[in-house]
């Protein structure tokens, strides 16, 4: 017995070893590309962040000075605060709207209208954000469609240059994010709802529950996973927004819409303070992780 098993075990062992070797070979190109253009720059960025360097000349070790500046400079802190305000528009609005729209579309018979709705809602998600920024700047202009609409309904007194006004610029930019991300949320939620057991819906309806009750007791719990995914994706989008701001306000008026992405670009390239910009980049990455990891944990806890 033992003699016959041993060779087979050895064969299995060598097959596994061969599998391991081949596996690493297969994974190698991806890993090399990833290490070369994600991990390596991440580490050099970390290295730069401890230096004062203008990107060309000699550099000087400054320890954690750059990090101290990130956390003490009111302008830089302001840009972090703005990024968190954007979460309301990039995350809360699209996820909430997506939930409602998905339930609405699901309540309809499948057909042209429902599939056309999905396509239309998804459109903003696929066009270049930079182009969306250009279109929306024009919407928000003094002579743009938003003000035109307001005067048409008798609210002309509210008309203003939305992107040039200190109070409205940040929400206005945020709404562009809502416009872009609502479609993604809706479509993802739709599939999620499709996987919820229909008998659950029938059960609450038989209990005489209305639309709202059904939404809270069946739909939302059934979509926990999708919600976690979308909250993660949209928070990353909010904290690392760049394209939209760059093509609409460039951080203005004043610093009302300044976000970390624009600050990093400006500090690193216009001001040539590579160390400070790198430190801000590292801080931004840690902020994203700090926001995203707890969501994963929450999603798992509520799964149980």
């Amino acid at each position: 017995m033992t003699t016959s098993i041993a060779p087979r075990r050895a064969a299995a062992h060598s097959a596994a070893r061969r599998g391991t070797l081949v596996g690493w070979l297969f994974a190698a190109p991806a890993l090399i590309a990833y290490c070369a253009f994600v991990i390596y720059p991440l580490l050099t960025g970390l290295q730069y962040s401890f230096y004062r360097w203008n990107g060309v000349g000699p550099s000087e070790w400054v320890g954690i000075n750059n990090y101290v500046r990130v956390f003490t400079d009111p302008d830089l802190l302001g840009s972090i605060r703005n990024a968190f305000v954007l979460i309301a528009f990039f995350t809360i609005v699209p996820v909430a709207a997506g939930l409602v729209l998905a339930t609405l579309i699901r309540s309809m018979r499948p057909g042209f209208f429902s599939s056309a709705s999905q396509t239309i809602l998804f459109l903003p998600q696929i066009i270049p954000l930079a182009a969306a920024g250009i279109g929306w700047s024009w919407m928000y202009a003094q002579t743009g469609a938003v003000n035109q609409l307001l005067s048409a309904v008798g609210l002309g007194s509210l008309a203003r240059p939305w992107l040039g006004d200190f109070q409205t610029a940040l929400p206005a930019v945020g709404l562009i994010g809502s416009w872009v991300l609502t479609g993604l949320c809706t479509v993802l939620f739709l599939t999620g709802i499709g996987k919820i057991d229909p008998s659950l819906y029938e059960a609450v309806r038989l209990d005489g529950a209305n639309w709202a009750r059904e939404f809270v007791t069946v739909t939302i719990p059934g979509l926990r996973q999708e919600i976690a995914v979308l909250v993660t994706i949209t928070i990353i989008a909010a904290l690392s927004s760049f394209d939209i701001i760059y093509t609409t306000t460039l951080g203005g008026p004043g610093r009302a819409t300044l976000v970390p992405g624009i600050s990093i670009y400006r500090i690193g390239f216009t001001q040539s303070e590579v160390g400070l910009a790198s430190a801000f980049g590292i801080v931004l990455m840690i902020l994203v992780l700090a926001c995203v990891l707890p969501i994963q944990r929450l999603a798992r806890v509520s799964d149980r």
């Binding site: 890993l31 990833y34 253009f37 994600v38 991990i39 390596y40 720059p41 991440l42 050099t44 960025g45 730069y48 990107g55 990353i236 904290l239 690392s240 760049f242 970390p260 992405g261 990093i264 670009y265 690193g268 390239f269 590579v274 910009a277 790198s278 980049g281 590292i282 931004l284 990455m285 994203v288 992780l289 995203v292």
Partner: peptide, 20 residues
Amino acid sequence: FLILGLTIPFEALIIPLYYQ
């Protein structure tokens, strides 16, 4: 190791990428 890369914003890498 790869999952860690999912959450890294491009902005955090753009400065070192430039010099690389």
